[in-house]
Design a protein around this nucleic acid. Structure first.
Lengths: 343, 343
DNA sequence: TGCTGGCACTCCGGACCCACGAGTGCCAAG
DNA sequence: CTTGGCACTCGTGGGTCCGGAGTGCCAGCA
């Protein structure tokens, strides 16, 4: 029995099953793919594959269905990359290029991804932690009330209101200008972690009479920088694609809908993919979420220059077109990264 | 035949059907509600109600189900307001009070609403058009590059980059300060429509040498003010509730999932409710969307002081608890309005 | 040793039938 | 106008049966 052919059979089973959504039998297999052997031979191979746990039959005398382990082998060793057509590439790139700000980039990404893959797409907003400070602005709104605006390299803007303590209410424009410049000098262009510590040092060095003011502003800034609430946001799109697999409602649609509500879960799912530069695939029961045993996640990190800012990906039934999906995820991640790089 | 009793029968049918999700027969009706008459009598009433188009039987010798017209009558004349318990009120108010900014208010509202009603909740972001300008900031990022930040009363922040034309690249801090003050004077506190025109006038009045600069900044501001792209955003939550009505998948779940993807449709649905101060209900086939014939929308406008900024509501199957849902929608709209008022 | 055709076996799915029961409409009597 | 009675309808669920797809195994062949 040829080991190569056995793998070819597995590949054929996966491809057929994904296409037809029905258990695939030996006869259909030799007809659809030019395997050059008889059904009986294929049956022997299938029996072996089943022994090894790569495929499984729902009941005696039904066709075979890939197991999670089978999909895993397929993804790792059997699937050939399915490059996007140039038309597709152009469509992605032009649609994403139309984005006007960060929010829009994320929205468009999620839309593109869900349309390309016909699955539910999830895109994490770029995290604060890796981004750098582009600009800090301090504005006097009213006596004793300041507005602090923090602009980050990813295009995100955070603002905070600062109420000055009674005794240091009087602030003139010159003081403010000075403060602005000091802050700009130590923070601009730095990563927020670095900027945060640099600002801490700044408070020490500032002239006596400005300490209260500086401290208040710096506190607001560091608070804004360490505010990870927004980090935990994700955009979800293509939920309508759930309608396509109306069957196995309870194994796929319901748990997915529930997971989509829980951003924490989504973040964990995507998070596993964040570090790796390549596209990561979680199949079925792999990973901690038993409710999502019927689903797979295809995800990758994105961000300027390989340095992953955040993750994006799709989640769908284990029975999915892995090569095509992986290609789409990779392509979108690439284009988004490029756009963030330019901005 | 008593007209009053006929209506009581209709009410009972609606309530029972909503509770049990099954066609309701004459016998069950007299048992569950103390109608004080025999099943046969009820049957006569039912026959009349059916003739008038308020109820309908799926097939001969099944129980009755309310029609859209029946629900309409129920909502308009038969339902008694179901006030929220004080515990519920407190829960809503404290959860919404925890919000830290506009985004958060919307997120929390959508979450609250979906949990209260166990339906899919939709909340439109407050529109620009009614809000006022709280502050405008102009910042020199680099020679010839300005950042314009527009802060609105709803807490929304818009920022725009402005590239100055070559010939007026040189801008000193004094000029900028002056510009900032001029803009602040004419725009602050005004509605954006008014601010927009006031800014237009400002360009006329400015000293010769500042015209190019002012014009560029004003252009960016008016552009930001008229940018209705963000107006068209909605937040959706509670999609997991779709899982509860796994049956009638094709009549309810699928079209809803598709509608949720199309923000335009959602806005139209909510939009009908925006003007009225009260809670609006669209039932089944009412309105233009034939795909959504199996669903109802319960919505209302919200915003400070009755002056509707935007809409929020829920969408679910026609078979829903209208009194409870309407109470929840009204309560959430009220609390959100109050919060926006305070901010 | 490995491939192949043949053959008996299994089991799902659909078709069919039937009995049950919930619910109705109608009617005659109160 | 209400009520009890009664015949009728029709969907539901359970049981049976059959066809077909698919399998496992075996003996024969290269």
């Amino acid at each position: 029995m040829s080991e190569d052919r056995k793998l070819a059979v597995l590949r054929a089973i996966v491809e057929d099953y994904v296409a037809t959504e029905e258990p695939v039998g030996s006869k259909a297999l030799v007809e659809r793919h030019g395997l050059g052997v008889s059904p009986a031979t294929v049956r022997n191979d299938m029996a072996a594959l089943e022994d090894e746990g790569f495929i499984h039959q729902p009941h005696t005398s039904a066709g075979r269905v890939p197991t999670d382990k089978g999909y895993r082998l397929f993804v790792d060793r059997l699937s050939t990359v399915k490059p996007m057509s140039t038309a597709e590439r152009r469509a992605i790139s032009s649609f994403l290029d139309g984005a006007v700000d960060l929010d829009d980039v994320v929205q468009r990404s999620v839309r593109t991804l869900s349309q390309l893959t016909r699955q539910v797409a999830v895109v994490q907003y770029p995290t604060l932690s890796r981004s750098t400070v582009r600009h800090v602005e301090v504005v006097l709104l009213a006596p004793g009330r300041l507005l602090v605006v923090l602009i980050l390299s990813t295009g995100r803007v955070e603002q905070r209101l600062v109420e000055l303590p009674r005794e240091s209410c009087d602030v003139d424009d010159e003081q403010l200008l000075d403060l602005r410049q000091r802050i700009g000098r130590v923070a601009a262009g730095r990563r927020i972690a670095d900027a945060s510590t640099a600002l801490g040092v700044l408070v020490e060095e500032v002239p006596e009479q400005d300490v209260a003011l500086t401290a208040a502003v710096v506190e607001a800034l560091t608070e804004a920088m360490s505010d990870h609430r927004r980090d935990e946001r994700v955009a979800v799109g293509g939920a309508a694609n759930l309608a396509r697999f109306g069957q196995d409602f309870d194994t796929t649609v319901r748990p997915l809908l529930e997971a989509l509500e829980e951003q924490v879960v989504l973040l964990r799912l995507l998070g596993e993919a964040a570090d790796a530069g390549a596209v990561t695939v979680r199949i079925g029961h792999e990973g901690p979420y038993t409710e999502l045993a019927g689903t797979s996640v295809v995800a990758t990190g994105y961000g300027p220059a390989q340095d992953a800012l955040a993750s994006l990906g799709i989640v769908g039934p284990t029975r999915m077109d892995y090569p095509g999906t992986m290609a789409a995820v990779r392509a979108v991640a690439r284009y988004v990264s490029r756009i963030l790089d330019e901005a």
